[in-house]
Design a protein around this nucleic acid. Structure first.
Length: 471
RNA sequence: GCCGACGUAGCUCAGCUGGUUAGAGCGCCUGAUUGUGGAUCAGGAGGUCGAUGGUUCGACUCCAUCCGUCGGUACCA
């Protein structure tokens, strides 16, 4: 009885066609983070369950994939990279702060999968631990911008706000701090469900179209009015929004100090060239997450708003202290690699590439295979990504393979070439263009479009110049 | 998690109110002067009809449960 090949729910294979674009994106972003002087970190996929679940509520524990080991300990797969990071900085006493690291790795959540949302997915995190509010947040936001620009994701907007601004709102509206998490979670949905439903959910709740009862937070009408007034604060620039916030919160004690922090971040961003057209102060950004304590931010692709935020992050000054010791100020952001790729694919900004190979060295005649191999290795040593035909087959089949995989050049070495110490270089695209009008099979075959003979010693040089001109 | 729809070849689907050997297009493989992709033509492979149980003389078709997919909603550290 054979085993049926299959994958469990929410898991998927990433075939070469997906992996090539993905790795290029990751390489590009890694380059940005290294330019910023961040260092790489890796941690195990498996952590102790209590290490993972401490920070999150019990509802969060449900989405942890549980595992065990031969010692029968309770373990789980990491659901993000921030919690393992806070373990690392608490556990390794030799670490010197600020600890600025990046990490790209798989994480797992046992949630219901949705389009573009899987149970195993990749996050690319950038964090600075031991960095108080200010420059560290600025450089995280700047790195988000530089990454989105570098990967050519199209127009984007980083929106940021601050938990402290939201706390001012709570004080102005007379909402107790214990309700903060519930209120923020509802506010975070503004984009998705609109003001009307947000207001309902903040008060009495409502019954949605599927008949599901949505529980309300139970605020008073007067409190919701204050929130609505706050949410209507907007402006063309960050400084305009800030001016309005200063006016709005003038009656709340200490509000200017809190808003000065945001003002500082905003003006530094301006000085560095990150202006309001791509980094907006948007008071509706709450981030659902409970552990944020200061600035919070997220990024969307403006042409693909339905994919939601492709970066998310914020300041979490208390997270590390749950492993004991003093609070360590920290800030960071996480790129949703899968979501970002899905959005860019949707926008046609990811060119599908089936293979990394630029050249296929065909093998027409097994007795000449040695020569073919030598040519292939000459190309490889010249830095040209080269596949050599490793399975037997007719030339037609080999060309078909190159065509299908999108390999732009094929090197042909048969007895004709071998006798004269040359090889034939075929440019697949040129041949396709030249043969466009041809109807008959025989004529097509004999025309041998897009081919040129090159001396054996010049193959690498020739292909190098062809490739350079093509790109 | 909850509500709803759906599940037939690798993909997109057809299959009349239950009735013999389940079809098409695309894709794939082979071939059409043995050293040439494409187009065209000719062949071919591939499905225990999502799984299990039930109703029936008989089930791809009806029923139940499970699994999965899609849509909505919730969640998203």
């Amino acid at each position: 009885m054979s085993v049926k090949p299959r994958l469990s729910r929410g898991l998927r294979d990433l075939l070469p066609e997906s992996m090539i674009a993905r790795q290029r994106l990751i390489d590009t972003v890694r380059g940005i983070y290294e330019i910023y002087g961040f260092s790489p970190l890796d941690t195990p996929a498996i952590e102790y369950l209590d290490v993972l679940s401490g920070s999150a509520g019990q509802e969060a524990q449900q989405s942890i994939f549980r595992v065990t080991n031969p010692e029968k300990e309770d373990l789980g797969l990491r659901f993000d990279l921030t919690v393992p990071l806070s373990r690392v900085v608490s556990q390794h006493s030799g670490i010197s702060f600020p600890f600025r690291r990046y990490q790209v790795a798989q994480v797992w959540r046992a949630d219901k999968p949705d389009p573009g949302r899987f149970r195993q997915f990749t996050q690319f995190d950038l964090d600075a631990i031991g960095a108080p509010c200010g420059r560290a947040d600025v450089e995280i936001i700047a790195a988000i911008c530089d990454s989105l620009s570098a990967i050519d994701a199209g127009p984007y907007l980083v929106r940021f706000s601050s938990r402290e601004i939201l706390n001012l709102l709570l004080r102005r509206a007379g909402i107790r701090q214990e309700r903060a998490a519930a209120v923020f979670r509802v506010l975070d949905k503004l984009d998705k469900i609109g003001l009307g439903k947000v207001k309902l959910e903040l008060t009495s709740g409502y019954t949605d179209s599927s008949g599901d009862r949505i529980r309300g937070v139970g605020l008073s009408a007067a409190q919701v009015e204050v929130i609505e007034e706050f949410l209507s604060v907007s402006g063309a620039t960050r400084s305009e929004v800030l001016r309005k916030l200063v006016a709005l919160f003038s009656s709340v004690p200490d509000s200017t100090e809190q808003l000065d922090v945001i003002d500082g971040i905003s003006s530094t961003l301006d000085a560095l060239g990150y202006h309001s057209d791509r980094v907006a102060l948007d008071v509706s950004i709450a981030r659902g997450l409970a552990y944020y304590t200061g600035p919070v931010f997220e990024a969307v692709l403006l042409d693909a708003p339905r994919f939601g935020s492709v970066f998310g992050g914020g300041r979490y000054d208390n997270l590390v202290s749950r492993f004991g010791g003093p609070p360590i100020p920290a800030t960071g952001a996480s790129m949703g690699v899968d979501r970002l790729l899905a959005a860019m694919e949707h926008l046609g900004r990811v060119r599908p590439v089936k293979t990394a190979a630029q050249v296929l060295v065909s093998v027409m005649d097994e007795t000449l295979a040695g020569q073919c191999m030598r040519v292939a290795f000459d190309l490889r040593r010249a830095g040209i990504r080269t596949e050599i035909q490793v399975a037997p087959g007719k030339l037609g089949k080999q060309l078909k393979r190159a065509n299908r995989l999108g390999i732009p050049y094929v090197v042909l070495i048969g007895s004709n070439e071998a006798e004269r110490g040359v090889v034939t270089v075929k440019q697949m695209a040129v041949a396709m263009k030249q043969g466009a009008g041809i109807k008959g099979h025989g004529e097509w075959r004999q025309a041998r479009f897009g081919q040129r003979e090159v001396a054996r010693g010049k193959v690498a040089e020739t292909l190098r110049s062809l490739l350079d001109h093509a790109s």
